[in-house]
Every structure is written in structure tokens, then in C-alpha cells.
Amino acid sequence: MGRLRVLLFATAREAVGRPRVDLTIPDDGTRVETVLAELTERYPRLVPVLAASRLFCNGEPVARRAARLAPGDEFAIHPPYSGG
């Protein structure tokens, strides 16, 4: 088993109550959709936030929820941007 770090910003951070969460995942990795299911089970307030969020892995956009994440990856949830 290995560690997956999840970074949370703005409304995602507010929904979870902290800026990052570490999840334990299998050595051969897991799917994005599995991680999202675990997060929403633990933190139901994330559900509406995720519906409008973009997802990133190691700084790169994740296009498909079937994409795989590996131990050591940094997975980020980006709610709609509001800079400026």
C-alpha cells in the first residue's frame, strides 16, 4: 500500500476542513473515480464542489475519471477559478 496526497483549494478545502488529505491506495494504483468515491463518502459536502471542479495529477489536468493514480502522486481538486 502507498500514499496518495490530495490537495484541496477554496470551496473544496472548506468542504473538507483542511487543505490536504492523505489516502492509502494499493501499490499498483487506483482509478480517479475510486478516489473521488472515497472522498465523498468521508466528506459528503464535497459532492457539489466536485461537480464543478477540474482535477489535476502532479500538476497536469486529468481528463478521464477512469485515469489511474499511483502511490506518491499528488492529486488536486480545483473548484472554479476566481483570481483577479
Binding site: 483549494f9 477554496a10 472548506e14 480545483h78 473548484p79 477559478y81 476566481s82 483570481g83 483577479g84
Partner: peptide, 14 residues
Amino acid sequence: LIERLKAEVPIWKT
């Protein structure tokens, strides 16, 4: 630049 920045750059305000 400012319109694209607001829409596409991962920056948030609270």
C-alpha cells in the same frame, strides 16, 4: 490576458 487569467489560472479568492 486579464479575462483569461480569471477563467483559466488556478487562483482562488475567499
